[in-house]
Design a binder for these strands. Structure first.
Length: 278
DNA sequence: AGCAACGCCTGATAGC
DNA sequence: TGCTATCAGGCGTTGC
């Protein structure tokens, strides 16, 4: 599941290959993945445009084009956006390839088995047309995301800490994997009320979030299911996960078996000894 | 308002 | 073995 580090890895890879490329044409095999505009308009508006800039915001991939339009992708659970050089055998397209962008230097395919991912094409000055984008909270790796700001915001919420961290309006880019990893690192129980966190816990959590996301990027993301980067390669952070998917395995700090519970209806991994509720 | 539950989806896996 | 039920989960929507 592409979270912040995976999306960051994808755009870094894509930048090397498609920056400056021209879109020759677009093929749509599953129209519903195009959130806006209508499929025919989507195709005609993209034709001939050049790719100027690639950015990430939260888990969104933002592609700025030569006509001041913005092409945005959200991969949700199982989406992939992969570049292929010319000569790629299209018979090798994975199942569930819903979009193909023909470029002057290769092609870009959007593939998504679960069909949750979406793509938008909007004027650059209408980012609010992209569902959720303008409601995002701070970027956790930005300098503007300060410890003070985080502390103040945490204090205001009585919600459980895990669902709060998953709330993209509270903080952008965290998903199930990195949330569990950050809480483990900070030794905080996922169901602890945010406003009950001590000052020390909040500080530790602030650092833990930055650390796990930075490490995730360093290791080019976590491939536990479908994730591959913009060149089709898997990440390596799955080899460094401490708790996610590790039910029954020994906590590397204390040896206690890792537990799996439901927290806000999501599978949640934690160490019952290192992360106490009280 | 604020939180829980549901729906969207397919593929992997568990269970019989 | 081969079938079916369950689970995976981001996020918008619906319901309490």
């Amino acid at each position: 599941m592409p979270e912040l580090p995976e999306v960051e890895t994808i755009i870094r890879g894509l930048r090397k290959n498609i920056l400056g490329a021209r879109i020759l044409g677009v093929e749509i095999y599953l129209p519903k993945v195009v959130a806006t505009p209508e499929p025919d308009l989507f195709k005609s508006k993209l034709k001939g445009k050049q790719i100027n800039t690639l950015k990430r915001r939260g888990k969104y991939i933002l592609v700025y084009l030569s006509d001041n339009s913005l092409l945005a992708f959200h991969l949700r659970m199982t989406g992939q956006l992969v570049f292929h050089k010319p000569g790629y055998n299209e018979a090798d397209f994975p199942k569930h390839t819903h979009l193909v962008f023909r470029l002057d230097r290769g092609l870009l395919r959007f593939t998504d088995p679960r069909q949750f991912g979406r793509v938008w094409l909007v004027p650059k000055d209408k980012p609010e047309w992209i569902s959720g984008l303008t409601k995002l909270g701070p970027e956790p790796l930005d300098d503007t995301f300060t410890e003070e700001r985080f502390k103040d915001k945490i204090r205001q919420h009585k919600q459980k800490i895990k669902p709060l961290l998953l709330d993209q309006a509270f903080i952008a880019g965290l998903g199930n994997i990195y949330t569990d990893e950050a809480l483990y690192r900070a030794r905080i129980h996922p169901a602890k009320r945010a406003s009950d966190l001590t000052a020390r816990e909040t500080e530790t959590l602030y650092r833990a979030i930055k650390e796990v996301l930075s490490e995730g990027i360093k290791y080019k993301g976590t491939s536990v299911r479908d994730y591959v980067d913009g060149t089709g390669d898997e990440g390596h952070y799955q080899e460094r996960l401490a708790v996610y998917g590790k039910k029954g395995m020994a906590c590397y700090r204390c040896g206690t078996p890792i537990s799996r519970i439901l927290c806000a209806n999501r599978g949640t991994y934690y160490c019952p000894r290192c992360q106490k509720l009280t």
